[in-house]
Amino acid sequence: MLDSHKAMVTGLRTVGKEPPTASQGGKSTARPMIEAQSLRKVFGTPRGGEVVAVRDATFTINPGEIFGLLGPNGAGKTTLLRMLGTIILPSSGTCTVAGVPTHEHPEEARRHIGFLSGNTRLYGRLTGRELLRYFGRLYDMADDAIAARTEELTSVLAMGDFVDRRCDTLSTGQTQKVSIARVILHDPDVLILDEPTLGLDIMTSRAILDFIKDARDRGRSIVFSTHYMSEAELLCDRIAMIHQGAILALDTKEALYAETGTDNLKDAFLALVDAAEAHAT
């Protein structure tokens, strides 16, 4: 596991495009990769009422930045990420990904996105190779390009032993590797990762986190949601704290500590929630 994990991290550095800009800590001057403006999502309830899942979320994410979404279960993280990934449409507001307006050209926007979440699973009756071929074709890649890219990813993610096995026979770690291969198969500019370490063992989690850092180093923009504060502290260049659909604060972790007078994200989050509830009452 450790060897394959090392191979995966090391190997990823040889995969994909060169970074468009080498930026760190969200301080790039390049054009933002994601621009969300007043994104709002309202769901209807079975009894005819309405639930606001996300309230007027506005932010930008730069190339080479890990942007964390931090919040408890039900805070609206998944809905927000699904809107960024154009899996669902916003009720109002606009968003661009790599300069493509998602509400006008969602299919084009998705070509720039790799989307992975606890909900994005694999087809159990297909082998890893068949699955990558299928998704490559959906991304309009030529068959020989898919084959070459599959070989490359099989090598760097150390999937040789199981890439031709049916996905329903794979272990959790192997499944996650095939998932990652699927996400980066088309070499996207933006990675949207919704709680990617949820339910994984410590070794697989570490592999995922290293993969995220590596992608950042290669200039990709990563939007990353978690409710593990330690992961956010370790990875994120900027963090949006989200509660009941609203972004309570958005900044670097140091700035968030300073703003809330705390020294860790957990306390900072609780302080922001308390302040928001006090303000509401």
């Binding site: 699904r82 990934g85 899996i87 998705r110 790799g114 994005t120 699973r121 087809y123 959906l138």
Partner: peptide, 14 residues
């Protein structure tokens, strides 16, 4: 139920 719908919807298919 298997959670593969979201995987499919994340691709550039209509």
């Amino acid at each position: 139920e298997r959670g593969t719908f979201e995987t499919l919807l994340s691709t550039p298919t209509r």
